[in-house]
């Protein structure tokens, strides 16, 4: 260890890896992982979210799971909650849609309206 800067570098790098254990105010991605969700393919969707966020190094976004929301016919369902608590519900998700949601909604704050529950029922 030759300098404080070197120490700071290790600190930052490790903190990103373990930020999960600190209270987090960032965005949350909640994937419905009940039997209906899993049967409809929620796992690859969630994996896609994790991988995409990983690629972009977005450690302040948490990916969690939840049970059945009740609209099983629209599974896989994913909810994205932004920093202000606004909830967007995406339905009939696929890994490809997940990648787009990360890029547009999570990074740039533009809701992908065509994937939302409101669109699906029209």
């Amino acid at each position: 260890m030759k300098s404080l800067a070197e120490l700071e570098e290790i600190r930052k790098k490790t903190l990103e890896q373990i930020s999960l254990r600190k209270s987090n105010d960032g965005m949350r991605v909640i994937v419905g992982m009940a039997t209906c969700g899993i049967a409809a393919g929620a796992r690859p969707v969630m994996t896609a979210f994790v991988e995409e966020l990983n690629k972009r190094n977005m450690t302040d976004v948490t990916v969690t799971m939840t049970g059945c929301i009740g609209v099983c016919r629209l599974e896989p369902i994913v909810e994205v909650i932004d920093k202000d608590g606004n909830k967007t519900t995406y339905v009939k998700m696929t890994p490809e849609k997940a990648v787009r949601i990360v890029a547009e909604h999570i990074v740039n704050g533009r809701v992908c309206a065509d994937y939302t529950i409101g669109e699906a029922d029209k």
Partner: peptide, 25 residues
């Protein structure tokens, strides 16, 4: 109960060795 004690990096992440650095420099 928060860090892995066998990983020095995790201690550093929670401001470990910063006090030593501050004292020395």
């Amino acid at each position: 109960g928060i860090i892995n004690p066998e990983q020095i990096d995790e201690y550093i992440a929670y401001d470990g060795y910063k006090a030593l650095g501050k004292a020395l420099t």
